[in-house]
Design a protein around this nucleic acid. Structure first.
Lengths: 123, 123
DNA sequence: TTGACGCGTAGGGAATCCCCTACGTATGGT
DNA sequence: ACCATACGTAGGGGATTCCCTACGCGTCAA
């Protein structure tokens, strides 16, 4: 059940995974991603309207997202247009893959069935 | 293209999402999840063999995973058997859903097509 | 009971996070 | 040239992270 045409994707190094998950571990940054997803590429000013914090603080969140590869930036006059880059999210989904059967089993009520696994006691 | 039978899932509150992503933002904790996935439920002692850090440090990582709902604990004599709880990972996949078409488009070379979105300039 | 085992928690220290205010830089308008 | 706009960065303070060592508690073995 791989819905994708199995396009090969570079395997991310561990610090990269750290950065992506850490970037997602903040409601403000997840909201920025949602705004870019639903509203298309936008300048910082427009994004900042949705938050209570100061604009410099938001700028730092954007930096975290940039360094995680989740957004890209293009200059247009004195504005910086930020744009969603979803590739790292695709890697997150790839990472989730091997766990999928576990929560499916749970939903299907199969419970502990998947825990019957190569099992030896330490001596 | 929803590969799942669309089983309804409780929508997680934002602090919960924070905790899950933050728990995943650490290579040691992701490795613990992998060990529980591939090796089935295990006591702390067995998990600790795979890491260079001290056992108390690993215990704290397990606490983070517990508070994120990613593992559960059962007592067996003087051991605590930890077990993978994949439900929060299912919620992560649900969260990824609305972004999926973006990296699919990228893989298909559709590039900026998805950025044609309700677009107005601020006055 | 005494001692070893399995595990969690307390407490501390270096690093990082997340917010702020101040300031610097580049572009655009007049 | 001048000033306003759009944005990033510096620096600081309080909270949190991640590792450590020391210790406490419950369980099994002799």
């Amino acid at each position: 059940m791989h819905a994708t045409p199995a396009a090969p994707r570079a395997v991310p190094s561990e610090p990269d995974q750290d950065r992506v998950f850490a970037a997602l571990a903040n409601a403000t940054r997840r909201e920025v991603l949602r705004l870019l997803r639903d509203g298309g590429p936008q300048p910082v000013r427009r994004l900042a309207e949705h938050f209570a914090m100061t604009r410099p603080s938001l700028s730092e969140h954007l930096k975290v997202l940039r360094e995680a590869g989740l957004v890209s930036e293009r200059r247009a006059g004195r504005q910086r247009i930020y744009r969603l880059e979803a590739a790292p999210l695709g890697e997150v989904q790839d990472w989730l893959g091997p766990y999928e059967r576990f929560w499916r089993a749970k939903l299907a009520g199969l419970g502990t069935l998947l825990d019957r696994i190569p099992h030896e006691e330490a001596p």
